[in-house]
């Protein structure tokens, strides 16, 4: 019923984007000439995420509100749901850009046990929001700009160091960008492979939980 029209809508948007173009990024052009205006995402995980004309590709996301864009990135299901249910993004002053250091699902799984995570999600909203704010920076910053500055202050008031390590950037000496420089409306999204913030690791070493 509504699904074909959704698909058509998406297709139409994607087509519009390829012709209308958008702001070029500061990264070097490593893509075919036809997509010079597309956001250039970089990092080892990018190839496994939607590319080209796939639904959820970086060019399409560049025109999306940030909350919508986050829903399209398959490896951010934990982070996206936490931002959405806690309402943390709505705390941002309207009109200001945001840069999101988004831990992957694997990063969350390596940090929190399922019980701990459910407890945070259902019973400790304040703690959860603080955790999420440790991954938000005011203003839209490319990873190159952040590395050039060397430090950034997240919304929880923490100073995060950023250094270039080969093709990726290292944050707070514990996380690496795995796919950086997604764009969304008034936003940058850098996917990272570890959770920032002060909460202790509770994931159990057995790596899996019984059904």
């Amino acid at each position: 019923m509504s699904h074909p029209s959704r698909a058509l809508r998406l297709l139409a948007v994607a087509l519009l984007l390829t012709t209308a173009g958008c702001t070029a990024t500061s990264t070097t052009d490593a893509k075919p000439p036809t997509s010079t205006s597309a956001p250039q995402v970089t990092g080892p995980l990018c190839a496994a995420l939607p590319t080209g004309t796939d639904p959820g590709n970086p060019t399409f996301l560049a025109s999306q509100p940030v909350d919508e864009a986050l829903r399209w990135i398959p490896t951010l299901t934990t982070f996206e749901a936490a931002l959405r249910t806690s309402g943390t993004l709505t705390d941002l002053p309207t009109g200001t850009g945001v840069t999101i250091l988004a831990p992957s699902d694997d990063a969350f799984a390596a940090t929190f046990s399922e019980d701990n995570w459910d407890d945070l999600m259902t019973h400790h909203t304040d703690q959860l929001r603080t955790l999420l704010k440790a991954h938000l920076i005011t203003g839209t910053h490319s990873i190159e700009d952040l590395v050039a500055d060397g430090t950034a202050t997240t919304l929880d008031g923490t100073t995060v160091t950023l250094i270039r390590t080969g093709p990726t950037a290292r944050l707070a000496d514990r996380a690496d960008t795995v796919c950086a420089d997604y764009q969304a409306t008034n936003a940058r999204i850098h996917i990272i492979n570890a959770v920032l913030g002060p909460l202790p690791v509770t994931a159990d070493s057995t790596g899996h939980r019984a059904h």
Binding site: H3, P50, P55, G56
Partner: peptide, 11 residues
């Protein structure tokens, strides 16, 4: 089609 199918499993 489901949303999962139309989004090629991105969502």
């Amino acid at each position: 089609r489901t949303q999962w199918e139309t989004t090629h499993a991105a969502q």
